[in-house]
Amino acid sequence: MDHFPLCITVLIVAGFYRFMFRGKSWVAPSTEIFEKRWLRIGSVVFHYGIIFAFMGHVMGVLIPMEVYHALGVSDSLYHFMAIAGGGLAGLMVVIGLVVMLTRKFLFPRVHAHTTGGGYFTLLWLILVAGLGTYMTLIYNTTVGEYEYRESIGPWFRSLFTLSPRSDLMLEVPILFKVHILLSFALFAAIPFTRLVHMFSLPVRYPMRAPQQYRSRDGFDKKY
């Protein structure tokens, strides 16, 4: 459970290595040129879903429970929001992934250009996201609402200070533990897969000048 720092180290070291020395493979490997219609559904639904899901995790795990209490958000309100919002995001992620995976088998052009890494990424994401969605939508509503903000939240934050409070995790339901383990493995896998493109989201684009001039070394030194 406490292997998070290890996984993050792999992510950073391997990611750095790939960026510096295998930089030409650092891309968002699109197959849009081969097929557009399914991609339109799969990719858009998945990506927006995962952005929502990410924000949901920040809200649930990184932001301490006390903050909500201080803001006057009651536990029942929080859980209602978490189940509705998180459930929707999770469903979007899973549906998007399934569409993208199906697409890989449906269209020969796309199929021919899918690598083992591509399948691994999709399947692993489906596992992680599927579990997460199941936990949010089914577990929470049938077995019982689990207050992860008292166990997983503080434990996860303790990982960043490199003094993990593993004791907090003893009572956590197994489903949650599996979800966490699988995601940690996924973090470590990022630098070896296409997922690296998430770090290249060109957020600075709106700020830059539309036209770009570059010169061979030193051309304008003479000005």
Partner: peptide, 23 residues
């Protein structure tokens, strides 16, 4: 979006920086 395409100052040739292009 990545600023990978550019126009060369010296001769105006428009090129794609293969290191900066993210596809």
């Amino acid at each position: 979006p990545s600023g990978a395409l550019y126009k060369r100052d010296e001769d105006g040739i428009v090129l794609v920086d293969q290191d900066a292009c993210r596809g």
